[in-house]
Amino acid sequence: MRKNIIFRFELEQAIPTHYTYIKMTTELENNQIWLSDIPKGESIEFTSLLPKYKRLLNIQWTTFFALLIIALIVAYFNFEEIGLVWFGVAFTLWLIFLLIKFSFIQLGFPNKGYAIRQKDLHYKTGYLTHKTISVPFNRIQHVEIRQGFISKMLDLAVLKIYTAGNSAHDLSLKGISLETAEEIKQIITSKVTQDA
């Protein structure tokens, strides 16, 4: 450990960046890759999702909130015990959640996008928390195309990409047309078989 620290110190003096760790200490001819030589994540250009997807999200959440308010009203008129005050509180909460959800959908939408490079696939999403998921093609186990009832009408599809990693960390590429999904799937399968 101590040796490394000394080594880093030397390099830092020589080159004014501290991302120089990948070189070997003694054998510089050992072909290690410098971080500056490898493809950069920052330069990826993301393709935005189809605007139709926003419509789908709006439809889905409108149904959800509509069902919620119907349940609320039915409950209010059917049970004597629920006073007007509690109904008011519930209604305000409903309204707040609705506003937050829909503003997040609108505001977060421009931040969603996907990108395909030669060897990996990226998907970014999230409004409060920005997330970027990267999956190299040679770690993909299998792919799945899903189409719900409404998305079928809107010609949208979800491309689910499974890796051997934790299933919570799998990638779902949403908001693309069925055609694009098939296309990407084709790319992935060809890459996967190529590698194997």
Partner: peptide
């Protein structure tokens, strides 16, 4: 039928 799912698994996997 309501939700269409296509799963494809390459043999090597």
């Amino acid at each position: 039928y309501l939700k269409r799912v296509v799963i494809a698994i390459p043999f090597e996997k």
